[in-house]
């Protein structure tokens, strides 16, 4: 570990630490909402479902810089929501790590919803009906049947979301800039190192860390997805 610390240097280390913090909070905050939206998309029919579906997936398609710009327009200190948040809760998002977490959460959201929605759709709705006839309310059905069956899928979605949040760059740099020690996440640090002569070594080290995180997340989420299938078969 000390070898890694030497190569990354204090700036790289602080970027890695910040990225972990940002990704952690982004995942934790986005997960309940992602689960709720995934459940709604998987199980309910309502007017405007396609609009909701489109909105959820928009960050996946839009240029990240557009997402960042929209965030700034909404949550900037002089923007309506941003000003209200600061006045009411003293919460400032623009150019702070909290803003980085928000940007990462929004960018990770579609991936989380996707994984969870697939898991929910794989659960036979007839099982939920059976639970209902046995006396379980909707909430109780979700907690005792749906959630246990999709738990690996939920975790897999969270892992993917975490990895995506770790790697978020475009929206983050647009919304919260690239301030070392404050808003400089792993990708921003890689970008910064590449701008200065002699920074390639540190950039490469951070690149390796990024690849490790991404690969690890993919493997873990693949294993968990398989576990969902096993669980549903009841083996």
């Amino acid at each position: 570990m000390s070898g890694l610390a030497d190569i990354l240097g204090p700036v790289g280390l602080s970027a890695l630490g910040l990225s972990l913090k940002v990704a952690f909070w982004a995942t934790v905050l986005a997960m309940p909402l992602a689960l709720y939206v995934a459940h709604v998309l998987a199980r309910r029919e309502f007017w405007g479902k396609q609009v909701l579906n489109g909105l959820v997936h928009l960050p996946l398609i839009l240029p990240p810089v557009v997402t960042g710009y929209l965030l700034l327009m909404t949550f900037g200190r002089r923007a309506p929501v941003g000003a209200w948040l600061e006045e009411s809760f003293g919460l400032v998002l623009a150019f702070r790590w909290t803003g980085a977490a928000l940007a990462a959460a929004i960018m990770a959201f579609p991936l989380m919803v996707r994984a969870m929605r697939l898991a929910i759709e794989a659960v036979d709705h007839k099982l939920e009906q059976a639970a209902g006839t046995l006396g379980a309310s909707d909430w109780s059905v979700f907690m005792t049947v749906t959630l246990p069956l999709i738990l690996p899928g939920v975790i897999s979605g969270a892992v993917m979301g975490f990895a995506k949040a770790m790697g978020e760059f475009g929206a983050t740099i647009t919304f919260v800039s690239n301030i070392p020690g404050q808003t400089q996440t792993l990708p921003s640090a890689i970008y910064a190192f590449m701008q200065v002569p002699g920074g390639e070594r540190q950039a490469l080290a951070l690149v390796c860390v990024s690849i490790g995180v991404a690969m690890g997340a993919l493997v873990v989420s693949e294993i968990l997805a398989r576990r969902v299938a096993d669980r549903i078969r009841g083996a």
């Binding site: 007839k126 006839t133 069956l149 009841g234």
Partner: peptide
């Protein structure tokens, strides 16, 4: 869930 019926399905539908 408030009807108190015992429903037995063709495909059993046990919780796996």
């Amino acid at each position: 869930h408030q009807r108190d019926v015992g429903y037995v399905f063709q495909d059993a539908r046990l919780f796996p």
